[in-house]
């Protein structure tokens, strides 16, 4: 146990020190933490509950827009702000910027959680591949709808207020926002999976009909889990909005084929339904992505496709699943008799 604590403290120290030790990699590391957050959040429903959503990017995009609307709406009329003939009359003081940032990130998280609570009961009537396709449809539809709302800037997208910070410091701030979300989510998940609630969503994954027959409130648990997951994805979306300064609906906010798929690949790579799987998967995938996107440009999608095929065919349980299969005793899977226990 104490060994684990040393590991956790060491990891936390690395997390805090990283942007100062490797300043030129700050943006890279910030994106890595974004991947960890969305992958871990995806695993809450996909891995732990067995509901593979392809539409969690909906919460990311909605979080971006919600973050922007809350941050800007605090001080200005959003419709005037997004009007194409925008002039310099909109200025944010440092105080307004940071207040907007805090309100935007928290507000976006809560708004996305509320969205999940409302749409959850509709979507959880779908099972297996139908849930995946249904949620994918939700994300695609949301992107198209938002790109037609002039109040939100339409297809042009929306610009965020300018940061009062020097860009180098702004990068570090964004890094710590993502990293903070990631650490909070990890600690939350570690606790959440140890509760009866966590056990109940595992039961839903393994045999939902049995869980129902045992009297578990399946719909309630499913909806709440998705909502918690949505809170973190939405908040991460809002941080991305501040990071990107300007974003548009289809390619950035509701980027179904990019981040929407990446988060699933991260989890598959690391191992579904494990606490560390999404984290390790996100690190591996992010490195893979940077290497192919930088040194293999033009072939990067082919490489990604190849990676997915290899995972699905040879590595279905991901890295953690592979370890669990090869070294079950590391995960406490063993025969233990009463006599042995008495002897020990």
């Amino acid at each position: 146990m104490s060994k684990n604590w040393i590991l956790y403290i060491a990891l936390l120290a690395i997390t805090v020190a990283a942007p100062f030790l490797f300043p030129s990699y700050t943006a890279f590391l910030a994106t890595l933490w974004l991947f960890i957050v969305v992958a871990q959040a995806w695993d809450m429903t996909g891995g732990q509950m067995g509901y593979n959503s392809l539409g969690n990017i909906f919460f990311y995009g909605t979080g971006m827009y919600a973050g922007a609307v809350f941050a800007i709406g605090l001080y200005y009329n959003v419709g005037e702000w997004t009007d194409a003939s925008r002039s310099e009359i909109f200025s944010f003081t440092a105080g307004q910027y940071y207040t907007g940032m805090v309100v935007g990130i928290i507000g976006a998280g809560l708004f996305c959680g509320l969205c999940a609570l409302i749409i959850g009961p509709l979507f959880f009537g779908l099972r297996g591949p139908y849930f995946a396709i249904g949620t994918l449809g939700l994300a695609i539809a949301a992107g198209e709808i938002v790109s037609n709302i002039e109040w939100l800037g339409g297809g042009q997208g929306i610009s965020m207020p300018h940061s009062p910070l020097h860009p180098d410091f702004e990068k570090v701030l964004i890094y710590f926002l993502f990293a903070g979300l990631g650490v909070v989510l990890f600690i939350f998940c570690k606790w959440f999976y140890s509760t009866r609630f966590g056990a109940a969503i595992n039961a839903i994954r393994d045999d939902e009909e049995k869980a129902e027959a045992m009297g578990i409130h399946t719909l309630r648990y499913k909806t709440i889990t998705w909502a918690i997951s949505a809170v973190f994805v939405g908040a991460a979306g809002a941080v991305s909005a501040f990071q990107l300064i300007h974003f548009e609906p289809l390619e950035t906010a509701y980027q179904t084929i990019n981040l929407g798929i990446f988060m699933v690949v991260c989890v598959l790579l690391g191992g579904k339904g494990t606490l560390w799987g999404p984290v390790i998967g996100a690190i591996l995938f992010h490195v893979f992505k940077e290497v192919t996107w930088n040194y293999f440009l033009g072939g990067q999608w082919v490489a990604l496709g190849l990676l997915i095929v290899i995972i699905v065919v040879f590595f279905q349980d991901g890295l953690m699943g592979y370890l669990k299969h090869r070294r079950p005793e590391w995960f406490g899977i063993k025969v233990e008799s009463k006599d042995k226990e008495a002897a020990a």
Binding site: S194, R196, A199, N202, A203, D207, K210, A213, M214
Partner: peptide
């Protein structure tokens, strides 16, 4: 019908009577 990916003790603990539990009880260990 059992939860095949979990061990026996976990299977048992999931079968706790949820009908006698409030939502807050579910957030306990």
């Amino acid at each position: 019908r059992i939860y095949s990916q979990m061990n026996c003790v976990e299977n048992m603990l999931i079968s706790m009577p949820h009908r006698k539990m409030s939502l807050m009880d579910a957030f306990r260990r």
